[in-house]
Computed example of a mutant assay.
Amino acid sequence: MLFALRMSLMGLHFMVAGVLGVLLGLCRPFNPDNSRWCARFYALPAMRILGLTLNTESNQVFTNAHPCVVIANHQSNYDLFIFGNIVPRRTVCIGKKSLKWVPLFGQLFWLAGNVLIDRGNPLKARHSLRNTTETLQKKDTSIWVFPEGTRNLGQDLLPFKRGAFQMAIEAGVPIVPVCASTYSRHMKLDRLDSGTVMIRTLAAIPTAHLTQDDLPDLIALCRLQMKTCIEEMDRQLSGA
Results as ranks from 00 to 15, higher is better:
Ile219Glu: 01
Ile199Ala: 08
Arg162Pro: 02
Thr228Glu: 15
Asp190His: 14
Pro177Trp: 08
Ala204Asn: 00
Ile175Thr: 08
Gln212Val: 10
Pro216Gly: 04
Lys227Trp: 07
Asp214Val: 05
Gly172Cys: 03
Thr228Ser: 12
Pro206Thr: 04
Leu224Glu: 14
Met198Thr: 11
Leu215Phe: 05
Met226Ala: 00
Asp190Gln: 12
His186Ser: 13
Arg185Ser: 07
Ser194Leu: 09
Lys227Arg: 13
Ala171Gln: 08
Glu170Pro: 07
Ile169Ser: 00
Gln225Val: 08
Val176Lys: 05
Cys179Leu: 07
Leu202Met: 08
Pro177Ile: 09
Asp193Thr: 11
Thr211Ser: 15
Ile199Leu: 15
Cys222Leu: 06
Asp193Ala: 15
Gln212Cys: 07
Leu221Gln: 14
Arg191Thr: 09
Pro159Ala: 06
Asp217Phe: 07
Ala171Phe: 02
Leu224Gln: 14
Thr201Asn: 02
Ile175Asp: 06
Thr201Pro: 01
Phe165Cys: 03
Leu218Gly: 05
Ile175Gly: 07
Gly172Val: 03
Ser181Val: 04
Ala168Gly: 01
Gln166Pro: 03
Thr201Arg: 00
Met198Asp: 14
Ala171Lys: 06
Ala204Trp: 04
His209Phe: 08
Phe165Gly: 03
Leu189Trp: 09
Thr182Pro: 03
Ala164Leu: 08
Met226Asp: 00
His209Asn: 15
Phe165Leu: 04
Val178Leu: 15
Lys227Glu: 15
Met187Ser: 14
Ser194Arg: 10
Ser184Asp: 13
Cys222Gly: 03
Arg185Phe: 01
Gln166Arg: 11
Pro206Arg: 06
Thr201His: 03
Pro206Asn: 07
Thr196Phe: 04
Leu224Ile: 03
Ile175Phe: 09
Glu170Leu: 12
Met167Glu: 03
Ala204Tyr: 01
Ile169Gln: 01
Thr207Lys: 01
Thr182Asn: 09
Ala208Asp: 13
Gly163Cys: 07
Pro177Thr: 08
Gln212Ala: 14
Lys227Leu: 10
Cys179Glu: 02
Thr196Ser: 11
Glu170Tyr: 01
Thr207Glu: 02
Thr207Phe: 00
Met198Gly: 11
Ala220Ser: 11
Pro177Leu: 10
Lys188Asn: 14
Lys188Asp: 09
Asp190Gly: 15
Ile219Ser: 01
Ala204Thr: 01
Val176Gly: 04
Pro159Met: 05
Ser184Tyr: 14
Arg185Val: 02
His186Pro: 04
Arg191Ile: 00
Met187Phe: 14
Gln166Lys: 13
Gln225Lys: 15
Tyr183Cys: 10
Leu202Gln: 02
Met167Leu: 13
Ala180Val: 12
Pro174Ala: 05
Val176Ser: 04
Leu192Pro: 04
Ile169Glu: 00
Gln166Val: 15
Ile199Glu: 11
Arg191Lys: 15
Gly172Lys: 05
Val197Arg: 06
Leu215Ser: 06
Pro206Cys: 06
Val178His: 05
Pro177Met: 10
